[in-house]
């Protein structure tokens, strides 16, 4: 089944040189600390907290997002925090390529691999690590510090392993995110 072409009003999105499409109605705090890999879509009402950076001097990357990612409406990306050796700090978050995050999901993970699908209204706890090629179903709560292994499907609250994914998901998710990007088009 082919997904339909999604049109958006041209004035709502800013398109960068590398093909990122960022909604003007999203909230990006501390944009100098955020890296977008290219061809990533950030939709309306997303919040990305690049201002919560690691304590200590120097230039810090807080949120790094790969290529062909999709942050759907109302999703929130914020780096995780903890105290380490008595010092409180937020720590950087990395998101791989071809990752789609569903509407209204909150992500406080440490790392999200490539080819990951996160459903709607999920909560990904602090310092969770999601490996490559995973699927998190809608309304799942991944508790803090969880490691989600490759090729697994997680569901429920707290999120538990429910099924395995076949080896072809890498190609599937790659094709799907690329198709979404090409079909996400401006209309006047």
């Amino acid at each position: 089944m082919e997904p339909p072409i999604i049109y958006y009003p041209r004035i709502e999105y800013i398109e960068t040189d590398t093909g990122n499409k960022v909604s003007r109605k999203s909230v990006i705090c501390g944009s100098q600390n955020i890296i977008l890999g290219g061809k990533t879509i950030i939709q309306t009402d997303c919040v990305i907290r690049g201002d919560l950076r690691r304590t200590g001097g120097g230039h810090a990357v807080v949120v790094a997002i790969g290529r062909y990612c999709l942050l759907s409406k109302g999703s929130i990306i914020r780096p995780p925090y903890k105290t380490y050796k008595g010092i409180f700090s937020y720590y950087p978050m990395k998101i791989g390529d071809h990752v789609s995050i569903g509407e209204g999901s909150i992500v406080e993970a440490a790392t999200i691999g490539s080819f990951v699908h996160i459903g709607k209204n999920c909560v990904i706890g602090r310092f969770a690590i999601i490996k490559d090629c995973c699927r998190i179903e809608d309304n799942t709560v991944i508790p803090p510090n969880t490691v989600v292994p490759s090729f697994s499907i997680y569901d429920g609250s707290p999120g538990v392993f429910v099924d395995e994914l076949p080896e072809c998901v890498q190609e599937l998710y790659e094709a799907r995110t690329k198709e979404y990007y090409t079909k996400f088009q401006p209309k006047d």
Binding site: D51, L52, F88
Partner: peptide, 19 residues
């Protein structure tokens, strides 16, 4: 409670720099 006080100290320092 110790995490909370440190978190507050951090936020009071960092939030005004970016917002």
């Amino acid at each position: 409670s110790s995490l909370h006080t440190r978190h507050l100290d951090y936020l009071r320092e960092v939030l005004p720099k970016f917002n």
